[in-house]
Design a binder for these strands. Structure first.
Length: 457
RNA sequence: GUGAUUGUAGCUCAGUUGGUUAGAGCGCCGGAUUGUGGUUCCGGAGGUCGCGGGUUCGAGCCCCGUCUUUCACCCCA
């Protein structure tokens, strides 16, 4: 006999946790539906070749690979073993667990291109796996809720993502959040203007850390990565953004226009941002909390346009949501020129945030509403039709299965947080009138079955 | 992947420089109360001290390995 354990970074969810998790899932699903997205699901397993090379080198290392079935070592030669894991892996593992929902979606779109009506809007709420070292808010198995639109480059889609983010967090009662938005074209433009064209990737990784490690260390890192003193010096205007008070989006846009006027790419990115925000305003969103952050980068290498990130304020948990536009993700699967944009909500981190801020409503997805307590077998025969009528009236009802002490059955109701109890003994059997007990107040009254249903319904 | 950190009852934690039979609170089960709970009182069950090896007359405590937890880096939901 050995004690069972869970693999690193995975968790069980009991009824109490599932009640809260389903509240999050339901809230997000509701919003996705309202915005016209349709659900799909894809397999947990993908061919490894579908996944590799889409997330950058770092991402590839975090993929869970699945050993081939049967004798996976059959075709492996001494030479293969000597050539290292990089060469060996594709020979012994042809499948892997999905790392996110966006790449499998791109694969789905390409495979179904002839039957899809474009633009195609889908949502997907499924677990993903990453072979990361677990930490606070970081797990090896976690759920993402993605909504993506492909087949249009309309900025209305970006605007709708901003709107959905607001709706989801408002409905979850996470009021205090920061939605940051930026555009990869602006980052590319910055690289151009400072005289390091095409290097926005390395540039981004460094400046993304600005609010975490500060200006000095960012500059040091850029130096180490081979940026010249001259280019670093011309980066100076960047540090004027967001350092003081959070400035108005329009002010930031003006500043960017001045600084980056020499770059066509940057001008385009700025114009896209501007239009997106304008559409959001026209929609009539009150209390919009969009913040333009020119230092927001995000690591995922496939983004080409707008990028989004949402953090909950007042808690030390990383981003709870992120996304962006990708112009050529389907190109890797032989279908170039299809633009898409999407957003991903991290259920597990949202859960952690809500738990820490105590935001779950007490009655979210309540369980059984009434427990029937029969004192003997005769009482059961009276109870069963009552059970049926309660359930027909859509009231969650159950009967205690054993004939035990009343104390024990009431304890059961308390343990399960069941607010009402119906007691049925010889008196109730004779009169047909039931005893309804409120478990919170302790008060008890005689009711007919109809009255019972009316009170609980 | 790099560097730290954690593990004792279902839960939260004590456990002396290595020394007999490892404790507490809460929870759980039973009773006081054979048709009425969340209060009280009484009683009871429950531990291969994460796992494997080593040092020692003797290890929960020391050493090595391993798994797990938490954290920083990296990256990200």
């Amino acid at each position: 006999m050995q004690k069972p354990t869970l693999p690193k970074g995975t968790r069980d969810f009991g009824p109490e946790q599932m009640r809260k998790r389903l509240f999050i899932f339901d809230t997000i699903r509701q919003t996705f539906r309202r915005f016209g997205f349709q659900p799909i699901e894809t397999p947990s397993l993908e061919n490894l070749s579908t996944l590799t090379g889409k997330y950058g080198e770092e991402g590839d290392q975090l993929l869970f690979k699945i050993l081939n079935s049967g004798d996976f070592a059959a075709g492996v030669t001494e030479l293969d073993l000597a050539s290292g894991s990089k060469k060996l892996t594709p020979k012994i593992a042809e499948k892997g667990l999905r790392y996110d929902l966006t790449v499998p979606f791109a694969r789905y779109v390409v495979m179904n291109r002839n039957s899809l009506t474009l633009p195609f809007k889908r949502y997907q709420m499924q677990p993903v796996w990453r072979a990361d070292r677990p930490q606070k808010g970081r797990y090896r198995e976690f759920y993402q809720c993605d909504a993506d639109v492909v087949g249009t480059d309309s900025l209305l889609c970006e605007a709708e993502i901003v709107l959905m983010i607001h709706e989801v967090f408002r409905n979850l009662t996470i009021q205090d959040f920061t939605l940051k938005i930026n555009n990869r074209k602006i980052l590319a433009g910055i690289a151009e203007v400072i005289g390091a064209p095409g290097q926005e990737g390395t540039l981004s990784v460094a400046i993304d850390k600005l609010d975490k490690i500060g200006k000095e260390k960012v500059l040091n890192e850029l130096q180490e990565r081979g940026f010249s003193d001259e280019t670093i010096a011309s980066l100076e205007p960047l540090f004027l953004f967001g350092v003081s008070e959070p400035t108005e989006p329009n002010q930031i846009l003006d500043q960017l226009k001045n600084w980056l006027s020499a770059s066509d790419t940057a001008r385009q990115g700025i114009a896209e941002l501007e239009e997106t925000l304008q559409l959001v305003n026209q929609y009539g969103l009150s209390d919009s909390t969009v913040e333009i952050d020119p230092t927001l980068a995000r690591g995922l290498s496939y983004y080409t346009g707008a990028i989004f990130e949402v953090k909950a304020n007042g808690v030390s948990i990383g981003s709870v949501s992120g996304g962006g536009r990708y112009d050529n993700l389907t190109g890797a699967f032989g279908m170039p020129g299809l633009s898409g944009v999407g957003i991903s909500f991290g259920v597990d981190r949202i859960y952690d945030v809500m738990e820490e801020l105590n935001l779950f409503p007490a009655d979210a997805g309540q369980g059984t509403q009434v427990l029937i307590i029969p004192f003997d077998t005769e009482a059961r025969s009276v109870a069963l039709p009552v059970l049926r009528q309660l359930r027909t009236a859509a009231i969650a009802a159950e009967m205690y299965p054993d004939l035990s002490k009343v104390k024990k059955m009431l304890d059961y109701a308390n343990a399960k947080n069941i607010p009402f109890v119906v007691l049925i003994g010889s008196a109730e059997v004779q009169t047909g009138v039931l005893s309804l007990k409120n478990m919170l107040t302790g008060e008890q009254l005689k009711v007919t079955t109809d009255e019972l249903i009316q009170r609980l319904g």
